[in-house]
């Protein structure tokens, strides 16, 4: 198995007495879109900023592209791209100039025109960034992180506060990154975002990882009970079962044989949102 792009073992980070990250382990493989999920204050940004080299850890081992981010230098920065959780761009530069400014920082930048197309800002290339909508600014922000043609991209809550259509456009951009073969480390507190974009995800709550895996399998969703609901002779019935197929077969066979009907028959698996909410609420309230 090739060396992971990001490898974290026993990572800890304290601010005074408060332990924001309490010993987490993670691996992210090359070419993966990895979603780091959790509510506000769970330790997402602290973790991602340690990976980016902005913060020093209190304990544990971290390797990003084979280097310790605390020690890594210019050559390492050539290979990563960063979108911060909040950053206002220089309002007096245009889209093309903002990308040109950042491209100039790298030895082997991606051509600016290509980046403009990639983030879907072709029509706005000569507009000042101050005149862009929030969603467009965020896409430019992603474009600036791509200016150096990095292998690994960090996106810290790229769609927080967006309206649905702006989110969808941002998602299209991120899916485009996957097609380019980039490794993406994405933090989000939206379950649907992880589901839509990520190959794998981990959920962090109160500084600890409470679940990880493919988004569809997070929190052992497969093994959680399925709920069967129906009305029979005016009576509401709700059954939780781990063998929904046999139970349903038996139930419908009996009802058909007796010439009855099941009104409002519903079979529901726990949604990812349910799993997420149950996992993150167990581990305490919003801290910090």
């Amino acid at each position: 198995m090739p060396e992971p792009v990001i490898s974290i073992r026993g990572l800890r980070k304290s601010y005074g007495d408060f332990e924001a990250v309490r010993g987490i382990d993670l691996d992210v493989q090359a070419g993966e879109v990895f979603a780091f999920l959790g509510p506000n204050g769970a330790g997402k940004t602290t973790t991602v900023e340690i990976l980016e080299g902005y913060r020093k850890r209190s304990g544990g081992e971290v390797a990003v592209l084979g280097e310790d981010p605390e020690q890594a230098g210019r050559a390492w920065r050539e290979r990563i791209g960063i979108v911060l959780q909040s950053c206002r761009l220089d309002p007096y530069l245009t889209v093309r100039e903002s990308l040109g400014l950042y491209a100039g920082y790298y030895r082997a930048p991606r051509p600016v025109e290509e980046t403009i197309e990639l983030v879907g800002l072709g029509a706005k290339a000569d507009a000042r960034t101050g005149s862009l909508s929030g969603g467009q600014q965020r896409r430019l922000d992603v474009g600036m992180a791509l200016a150096g043609d990095p292998e690994l991209l960090f996106l810290d809550e790229p769609t927080t506060g967006f309206d649905p259509s702006a989110r969808r456009q941002a998602w299209d951009v991120i899916e485009g990154l996957r097609d380019l073969g980039k490794t993406v480390f994405l933090t989000t507190h939206y379950m649907d975002e992880a589901q839509r974009l990520a190959d794998r995800a981990a959920i962090i709550a109160a500084g600890e990882i409470v679940a990880s895996g493919a988004p569809g399998e997070l929190g052992d969703r497969e093994s959680l009970p399925t709920t069967i609901r129906y009305r029979l002779s005016g009576e509401e019935v709700s059954v939780e079962t781990r063998t929904p197929v046999t139970d349903l077969h038996e139930l419908t066979g009996r009802v058909v044989a007796e010439g009855l009907d099941l009104e409002g028959l519903e079979v529901t698996r726990p949604s990812l949102e349910d799993v997420y909410l149950s996992l993150t609420s167990e581990s305490g309230e919003d801290e910090r």
Partner: peptide
């Protein structure tokens, strides 16, 4: 202004010294 906007922090994430 650039510091509070996050632009200085962002620039530090690039290879530019």
């Amino acid at each position: 202004i650039a510091r509070e906007d996050g632009r200085l922090k962002r620039g530090r994430g690039t290879p530019m010294p």
